[in-house]
Design a protein around this nucleic acid. Structure first.
Length: 106
DNA sequence: ATAATGACGTCGG
DNA sequence: TCCGACGCCATTA
């Protein structure tokens, strides 16, 4: 067999971390890649989110500069307001205050 | 097999 | 602050 599973191990780990991020907190793609400490890198984390992000709180995964995922910034803002995520700008462009909102993992 | 692409990150201008 | 160039790496053309 060559690919019996719907998602690979790396993807499963990424999704697991994303679900562990508490409301009002966020992690960048690079943070997640670094937190796993193994795996191809931030770019591939983004690939996983693009493919399976719909199953997890994707709005808590954003760019290192605090800007949310492209194309979803508006929907993300609604979640931030509802969760009380610290914002540096309610945009546009929408920007999360990374200094306060970053979740170091655990 | 080579080139282009992408939900990235960092640096220089 | 905004924008472009690079480096990075799996996927797709």
């Amino acid at each position: 067999m060559t690919r019996a599973e719907p998602i690979d191990d790396f993807a499963a780990r990424v999704l697991d971390v994303v679900e562990s991020i508490p409301p009002g907190r966020v992690m960048s793609y690079g943070d997640i890649a670094g937190y796993l400490r193994r795996g191809p890198g931030p770019r591939q984390v983004g690939r996983v989110m693009s493919a399976y992000g719909g199953a997890v709180p994707w709005w808590r995964v954003i760019h290192a500069d605090g800007t949310p995922a492209p194309g979803h910034d508006l929907a993300a803002l609604a979640h931030y307001l509802a969760e009380g995520t610290p914002l540096r700008s309610a945009g546009p462009p929408v920007r999360v205050d990374m200094r306060r909102a970053r979740w170091p993992g655990r």
